[in-house]
Design a protein around this nucleic acid. Structure first.
Length: 724
DNA sequence: GACCTGCTGCGGTTTG
């Protein structure tokens, strides 16, 4: 074998031989060279099942075995975003570590207290943990952190792309900074990832102080051949006797997916329920065994485990109709085809989904995109006339083929998570000064966009007699306040993301899953859930439980949700598609007809010659050319001048009858940098878990750093000239 | 016009 193999410790070499591998994979060999003999941070980027775990751990375990560790504590730390992933990875690592004497400890909410107690008594080997459980260790055992992690050589961050820009990712980076501070030494970081949009930004996220030094090991080649089809459907054929678009899509899925393993991403939980119900019915009508099952976060763990097990079982063909639950990490084996109903919200997630198919050598990856558009009428909306769903789906596929995907937004303040970390540090240390908190979280930690004055404003907000999260002792030390004590003492504290309140649904004494509280249900009402139909028997509002029995009809419940964020680049690709004339070969005839119709309407409306089009006495369409963040910013700015605004992907629909200022003048004023109050319409600014403790001013600043982009207004409006 | 993720400590009972 290669020189990389020679660098591994004996017991690890023995394990590699026992696998019967002829060669280490290229990405593994390069990762071994990058990890052994250096203390560099490393990102290993390879497709799902590309051997990333081994690439990182074979050399890391070897290093641990080759060094004489005198200090106690865990040798290696692994942070994973899912409990199921930790359980999977612990099993794989346990196998590698069989002959090394290194214990492997999985640690999350479902791991028994005895396993945790044993690991705490004699910390050693590899610890695999969730961000929340690590947070709990800091809060409950803050003083023991040096003892537990004093000898830790490296931390492996799995699914790095999934935590880069999220509140949870900020939490992880904060925990890593706190870990290095408590142990008094830097701990090398190894990130594992499949999809990364911008490597420079990913490096900065992994190690903000020294991104240039992060070593990148990226798998080359090995990409499966991609087979694509985009099918177009038109709904609302009142005059036709034919099936509805939903039925037509379900029938097509039934015909083409039956007999193999597949994933159907339906976009929303309600859609998952509708398609799963139709497909179950088609199986029953044809007297065939059931093989289509729904999978989303509101279904019971028991049902989801059943679907995941069936997907892994080669003997039973299974198609899961799902949301992004089946997008990440957990091993469900290879699937034949990935279907996507409606356009996805990001190219990154489309790429991640597609990575589930075509993983075996010689097998292509197959993507079936279904786009449903509404039949046009005289009063059809701009979105329908321009076929925005279909054009966005084409734009996403084109960007996927170009290899592009969305980078994270680097300048967000993340004030909600900052509040969480302030409470956590105070709890873990039993008190802290404002200066200590600022240094630890904002200077050395991930909240570098937060200035000292802004940080003090946050501390003041959570220290008021209303908020009572923190209070100051005589000597200046900050302590938990009455509300803070209660918050931190409850086990719900550790996660940084909010969770909605829900009813549990129970049938025959078994848990079916849960639905949001906003569903108003009473005895006798019928619903579709878990792909089947039910009648409500009893609503227990005290225990938040609804009992149901099987029925013949029903409608899916409401699951709520908030609008997705589309990147600027997707909108400019959509414009290229409107203004171009190329017909992609992967589109079927109805889809091409819809595309031709979209282009005809785009030109007929006049967008090819002017981005602002007058459609009535005081009504306008604007092609802003911007993604959701800038589009929403412009919408709020125009609303502040009294215009009524409706948002679409890359477009705004304006009614100016009641405006204080004509549209042209409004745009001119914004183009020249004139003052504007984006919050005049009092938009909802509380969307993160700890936002409720912040002042209106802080909420606005937080929104401006993440959801809006006020400084872009002059540039956006400078491009928009109204033709008179 | 959306999706997903996570959870401690203690008291009581049973078992060796």
């Amino acid at each position: 074998m290669s020189s990389a193999f020679e660098k591994l410790a004996r017991p690890v070499q023995k394990w590699v031989r026992a696998q019967g591998w002829k060669e280490l994979r290229d990405v593994q060999a390069r990762a071994i060279h990058a990890v052994c003999g250096t203390s560099d941070d490393v990102i290993v980027a390879a497709s799902t099942a590309g051997g990333k775990t081994e690439a990182a751990f074979l050399p890391l375990i070897s290093q641990v075995l080759q060094a004489s560790a005198e200090q106690g504590g865990f040798d290696l730390l692994y942070i994973g975003p899912l409990k199921a992933l930790i359980t999977d990875q612990a099993r794989r690592l346990d196998d590698i570590c069989q002959e090394t004497g290194l214990p492997v400890t999985p640690w999350h909410g479902d791991v028994t207290a005895s396993v945790k107690a044993r690991a705490l008594r004699a910390p050693h080997g590899i610890l695999l943990i969730t961000p929340e459980s690590l947070e709990a260790l800091f809060v409950r055992r803050g003083l023991e952190i040096p003892r537990l992690f004093g000898a830790t050589r490296a931390v492996v961050l799995d699914e790095l792309h999934s935590i880069l820009d999220s509140e949870r990712g900020v939490q992880v980076r904060s925990l890593l900074a706190r870990l290095e501070r408590s142990t008094g030494h830097p701990i090398r970081r190894i990130g594992l990832s499949a999809t990364l949009g911008d490597m420079a930004l990913a490096r900065a996220y992994l190690r903000a102080d020294d991104p240039e030094a992060v070593h990148l090991v990226k798998a080359t080649g090995g990409e499966a051949e991609l087979r694509l089809q985009l099918r177009g459907y038109v709904s609302g054929n009142q005059n036709d006797a034919g099936p509805s678009a939903t039925d037509a899509v379900a029938e097509h899925l039934f015909r083409h997916l039956r007999g193999s393993n597949n994933l159907v991403f339906a976009g929303a939980r309600q859609q998952v329920e509708i398609y799963a119900d139709r497909l179950r019915e088609l199986c029953e009508t044809a007297q065939l065994p059931q093989e289509f099952y729904p999978h989303h976060a509101n279904l019971s763990r028991e049902h989801r485990d059943f679907v995941e097990r069936r997907l892994k079982d080669a003997g039973k063909p299974t198609t899961a109709v799902c949301t992004s639950t089946l997008e990440l990490g957990i091993d469900i084996g290879d699937v034949t085809c990935v279907a996507q109903i409606g356009a996805p919200f990001s190219v990154a997630s489309l790429r991640q989904r597609l990575g589930r198919s075509g993983r075996r050598a010689g097998q292509p990856a197959i993507l079936r995109q279904y786009s449903i558009e509404t039949r046009l009428a005289a009063d059809s909306s701009l979105a329908d006339r321009l076929r925005l769903g279909l054009v966005r789906a084409v734009a996403m596929i084109e960007l996927l083929l170009e290899g592009w995907c969305e980078p994270p937004r680097p300048d967000a303040l993340h004030l909600s998570t900052l509040v969480h970390q302030v409470l956590s540090v105070i709890a873990g240390r039993g008190g802290a000064t404002a200066a200590q908190l600022y240094r630890q979280l904002c200077q050395d930690g991930p909240f570098r966009q937060v200035s000292a004055p802004l940080f003090l404003e946050v501390l003041r907000a959570i220290g008021t007699s209303d908020a009572r999260l923190i209070e100051q002792a005589q000597n200046g030390l900050l302590l938990l306040g009455e509300v803070g004590e209660k918050l931190v003492g409850h086990y719900g504290f550790y996660a940084v993301f909010p969770t909605p309140e829900e009813y549990r649904l129970i049938a025959g004494g078994r848990d079916l899953g849960s639905i949001p509280l906003e569903n108003v249900l009473s005895r006798g009402m019928m619903l579709i859930f878990s792909g089947r139909r039910w009648t409500v028997q009893e609503v227990d509002t005290v225990n938040r439980a609804i009992t149901v029995t099987p029925s013949q009809a029903g409608v899916p419940p409401l699951f709520g949700g908030s609008p997705g964020v589309i990147h600027d680049r997707v909108i400019s690709k959509m414009r290229e598609i409107f203004e171009g004339d190329r017909d992609p070969g992967y589109m079927d005839r109805p889809a091409l007809e819809l595309l031709a119709e979209a282009r005809r309407n785009y030109h007929a409306l006049g967008f090819a010659t002017s981005p602002v089009v007058q459609t009535g006495e005081s009504t306008f369409f604007i092609a802003t050319g911007c993604g959701t963040v800038k589009n929403t910013t412009l919408a709020l700015a125009l609303q502040s001048f009294g215009h009524e605004v409706q948002e679409h992907d890359g477009f705004l629909e304006i009614a100016s009858a009641k405006a204080d200022l004509p549209l042209a003048e409004s745009l001119d004023r914004l183009a020249s940098g004139g003052a504007v109050d984006l919050f005049a319409g009092r938009p909802n600014l509380m969307f993160e878990k700890f936002h409720r403790y912040l002042t209106e001013d802080l909420l606005r600043e937080d929104a401006l750093s993440s959801r809006l982009q006020a400084e872009a207004l002059p540039e956006i409006c400078g491009r928009l000239h109204v033709l008179n």
